[in-house]
Design a protein around this nucleic acid. Structure first.
Length: 371
RNA sequence: GGAGAGGUGGGUGAGUGGUUAAUACCAGCAGACUGUAAAUCUGCCGCUUCGGCUACGUAGGUUCGAAUCCUACCCUCUCCA
């Protein structure tokens, strides 16, 4: 992977990542395709939104159909027909989200398959191997996503385990794919700094911030982003894992983040929430039943051009799958156009104006911070 | 005409003397969702000036107390002629 920094605002950056499978313009949003599919979207649709990279997940694909099976079928790209870069999450997040179903030890993680109950033990080395079997372009280190809230001591212990695992991931990683390390440390600045230094010392192709947007307040998250902003490596991509809402993304870009992923645009689409330039629209609500307007007046996606709010309201109420499909398309399209807007603004030295307009259109006050 | 079954809140449908303004599901009204155990989950869902009031086909009755028991009537469905 090659990293090329294009322009820069105070912290916000416009850059380009090059992979054998294609380029990624950053700041970038990566739709989440956990099971080898961005739910409700064909590869053709996905590409037409402008998505240049998507996620896949170690945990899910290892269980079904199995990473060996995917490998035998020609890798995740061929299997899913997505020929652009794929970032695979390591399964670290599942260690956290599956909670009591997972038992953690120094060596690795034990859990039972929810499908057939078989006991599985996964080490950091296994996670790397699985991601390579999938044919990942960006492999993520296997980490433990620190719980929120957590005491300094708990966060320290968790972070140190993640750092030992990070070293093992680095040692186990042999392929030409990119490998990203993940900074943990909870809401504790000293631990975040220590973790970042450790990740820098081990040496990764990119730096991810993990353990954010797990229940903390907006202020706490901003505090960590602000604290990290001038310490993150200049010459490597920075990835804020699992974030977020449009306003979270815009804010994080201000603090120098290059890459994002989040299930929100697709999950919320399936749950009837459409994301627009002026805020969210709960399309299943009564006022939209007879609303002939588009989802978003300012959107030029095919859904906004061809379908009314009334129709999407009807599809949602009747639980028709097309509702999920069209809503997902719009939401992903919105995220991609948001990122395009950010990139263009950075290129043209209009980032400060872009951010102001972004908050104005939503009727929100713009938070203080770098521009 | 005869025999049987049944009528419960917007719908379907539990409940067969008291803790029942009445289970559950659906519909309806809102809300949540951030490296996807999620096409999921949560709350509200008779009226009210918050003291109460009105409710289980209708009208009476029994009882301290009835959606639940009795009587009459009305209506619906099934089967037989």
């Amino acid at each position: 992977m090659k990293f090329k920094l294009n322009t820069k605002s105070e912290f916000a950056r416009r850059a380009e990542l090059s992979f054998p499978r294609g380029k990624i313009q950053t700041p970038a949003f990566m739709p989440v395709g956990t099971n080898g599919t961005v739910k409700g979207m064909t590869v053709e649709d996905l590409k037409s939104t402008g998505a240049e990279i998507i996620l896949g997940n170690t945990y899910h694909l290892m269980l079904r159909p199995g990473d060996e099976a995917v490998k035998e079928l020609g890798g995740l790209h061929k299997f899913s027909n997505w020929d652009r870069p794929i970032l695979t999450d390591s399964g670290g997040f599942q260690v956290w989200s599956l909670g009591d179903l997972v038992k953690i030890s120094e060596e690795g993680v034990r859990f039972s398959s929810p499908y057939d109950g078989r006991k599985i033990f996964m080490t950091p080395e296994d996670s790397i191997q699985i991601q390579e079997n999938l044919g990942s372009d960006i492999v993520m280190a296997f980490d433990e996503c620190t719980d929120y809230p957590s005491t300094h001591e708990q966060a320290k212990e968790s972070m140190e385990l993640s750092m030992r695992w990070a070293k093992r991931c680095k040692d186990a990683h042999k392929s030409s794919s990119a490998l990203f390390g993940i900074v943990q440390g909870g809401m504790h600045e000293d631990l975040r700094e220590e973790s970042l230094n450790k990740i820098k010392e081990i040496g990764f192709d990119g730096v991810a911030l993990g353990g954010l947007s797990v229940g903390e307040s907006k202020e706490e998250k901003t505090k960590i982003l602000a604290f990290m902003a001038d310490k993150l490596p200049e010459d490597k991509p920075r990835y804020l894992m699992g974030v977020g809402k449009p306003e979270d993304i815009v804010e994080a870009v201000r603090y120098g983040i290059d890459m994002f992923d989040c299930v929100l645009p697709t999950r919320n689409a399936r749950n009837g929430q459409l994301i627009t330039s002026t805020g969210v629209v709960n399309i299943r609500n009564a006022p939209y039943k007879m609303d002939q307007g588009p989802i978003d007046e300012n959107c030029d996606c095919k859904v906004c051009k061809n379908y009314s709010r009334a129709y999407l309201n009807h599809l949602d109420r009747t639980n028709e799958m097309l509702g999920s499909i069209l809503s997902s398309y719009h939401n992903i399209y919105y995220y991609q156009s948001l990122m395009r807007g950010i990139r263009e603004a950075l290129e043209n030295n209009l980032f400060a104006k872009f951010v102001k307009d972004f908050y104005n259109m939503r009727g929100l006050e713009m938070p203080d911070g770098p521009l």
